[in-house]
């Protein structure tokens, strides 16, 4: 573990955690390729649009990173996103004035779901894979039970602004609000991971027993990771709801897509390795890849096949560089 090496800790230079360099290289190649493939990418606006599309997944990747690096899984984020969008639409129901209290409510609900996930995982000792799988089923069922089968209501204009609109900046053109929000969250996540709590989270994923013996609050920190993941799903839902509107399929498959993104960023399932920046770079890489495939006229079936090959290759590459004795299971 690099973080436990005292010599490397106080370094001022932004060092790359292991596994970060490859994904950044792939991302750079993809971004350049985009410029050649599509005329839209000859100016900043094209890339800003890409960022806007990628923002929900990148934000989800931040949350999922916290859970994965501390040694867990969160499979419930996809259904949580759907649930949040459907709940927000039902509560707002086109009423502009309701936006003000619905947004905090949505965030609170996300945090609550994360808290429940975390508490069941840490206090009842159920593997997080099972807990969040159960939560996925519960959320899926409960939301549609409540709405009676199909989502009703509508989001207000104000609610949709964050995901849809932007503000004008000289030289760049229109910068979407979601990109600004993303930048803020990225900065917050990086600062968090550089602080004591963030380092402790990585340490828990690496060696839970050592942290416990060292007096760390393993249960509390793990629960925090799930709460943050729930919150990230709430933010992603607000963006997606604005961007794509209300549907019952808005979060479909997001859980696997975001885990793919995080793993693509070199974060090791089972915990203890990888950086939050790399996780987000993984998400952006995935979105850039989809955009490129679209531009090249490859879509539908081949898209998922390419995604499948890439994640296997990426993880196989990362595993080949890792020492043999780090093959512990990570299913807690």
């Amino acid at each position: 573990m690099t973080t436990t090496d005292p010599a490397s800790r106080p370094s001022r230079l932004p060092r790359l955690a292991d596994g970060t360099a490859p994904v950044l290289a792939v991302l750079a190649v993809l971004l350049v390729a985009l410029a050649f493939a599509g005329p839209a990418y000859s100016e900043p606006a094209g890339y800003l649009a890409l960022l806007k599309r990628a923002a929900p997944l990148m934000i989800l990747a931040i949350g999922q990173y916290f859970v994965i690096v501390s040694g867990g899984f969160d499979l419930s984020v996809g259904s949580l996103v759907t649930a949040e969008v459907v709940i927000a639409a039902r509560l707002i129901d086109g009423d502009e004035a309701a936006t003000l209290w619905v947004i905090p409510f949505v965030l609170g609900f996300g945090a609550l779901v994360g808290l429940v996930n975390g508490l069941i995982t840490t206090r009842l000792l159920v593997p997080s894979f099972i807990v969040t799988l159960g939560m996925l089923l519960v959320l899926d069922g409960a939301v549609f039970l409540w709405t009676g089968g199909s989502p009703r209501g509508a989001l207000s204009e104000a609610f949709r602004t964050i995901g849809r609109e932007g503000f004008d900046v000289p030289l760049l053109g229109q910068v979407p609000w979601s990109v600004l929000l993303l930048a803020a969250l990225v900065a917050a996540a990086v600062l968090f991971m550089r602080g004591g709590t963030g380092r402790m989270l990585v340490a828990i994923g690496d060696n839970e027993t050592a942290v416990r013996l060292g007096g760390g609050h393993v249960e509390r920190l793990r629960t925090l990771a799930f709460v943050l993941s729930g919150l990230s799903a709430a933010v992603a839902a607000i963006l997606l709801g604005g961007f794509a509107g209300v549907s019952a399929q808005v979060g479909d498959g997001l859980e696997f897509r975001v885990i793919t993104a995080v793993v693509l960023g070199g974060v090791v399932l089972g915990g203890g390795r990888g950086s939050v920046v790399a996780a987000m770079a993984g998400a952006l890489t995935l979105e850039a890849l989809f955009s490129l495939l679209n531009l090249l006229g490859i879509s539908g079936g081949l898209e998922s096949a390419v995604q499948g090959v890439i994640i296997i290759a990426a993880v196989a590459y990362a595993a080949s560089g890792r020492s043999v004795f780090r093959t512990r299971k990570g299913t807690s």
């Binding site: 899984f73 696997f256 885990i259 793919t260 793993v263 090791v268 399932l269 089972g270 539908g300 079936g301 081949l302 898209e303 998922s304 096949a305 390419v306 995604q307 499948g308 090959v309 994640i311 296997i312 993880v315 196989a316 595993a319 080949s320 890792r322 093959t327 990570g330």
Partner: peptide, 21 residues
């Protein structure tokens, strides 16, 4: 290849899905 089973089988699933789609 020492790929985590979660990722390996998810990858295979996506490849089969691509073929089916």
């Amino acid at each position: 290849l020492k790929v985590n089973a979660f990722i390996a089988t998810l990858g295979t699933a996506l490849i089969i899905r691509g073929y089916l789609e």
